[in-house]
Design a binder for these strands. Sequence first.
DNA 1: GAGTGATCATAA
DNA 2: TTATGATCACTC
Length: 226
Amino acid sequence: MHEYICPKTEPKSEQELMQQAASIAGLTLGELATLNNIQTPENFKREKGWTGQLIELSLGAAAGSKSQQDFAALGIELKTIPIDHSFSPLETTYVCYAHLTDIAGVEWQISSVKNKLQRVLWVPIDGTRTTPPKDRVIGTPFLWSPSAEQEKQLKMDWEELMDMIALGDVESITAKHGQFLQIRPKAANGQALTDAIGKSGKVIQTRPRGFYLRKDFTRQIIEQQF
DNA sequence: GAGTGATCATAA
DNA sequence: TTATGATCACTC
């Protein structure tokens, strides 16, 4: 176990990334923030993505919003996941933005959902709401790839949801669809609109959506680690 | 209490 | 506006 040192560049190998990841396990978010010279918010009512960005910074991920994996050169995506004391996920996990137009011919194999989830470095973090951010403890990060069974489950949900979008049924999709992968609104507020396919192929305006992993799915991933 | 739908910050 | 990082908070 080596001591945590702020990265200056992106990790060049999986081994380098994993060693860096292991070095933050056991630290609190407050300690890690201090080591990186940033302030820890009192709560996440406003800066909801703060944890994820702190971990990205700590592991040397290139900043910015790119529709690529966090460590593109290594083909690895970074995700933090809030868990309780029984290692159970407290929140669903955002995967990616859902495109609602020009989706004809898009297949699972080339979908951004599969692309993002191919190899994920999960960083479990104690996310009990009663624990202030600075006292939340980082767990042991681990690398995961979907098993054949898990990928099949995701593919089925994805195909069902994409079919509905393609057929102009976006507006009837709710978070109840999909057993493991769901679609929910993803926007700055309820007023945001984007183009989508409507009935009879007409272009309509609707609220932007994103793909999310249900807690049942992420719980499987975490459990298979222990 | 769980889960869905709503919302916050930031970059390009 | 799209997309990244997610959690909040209301309803059931």
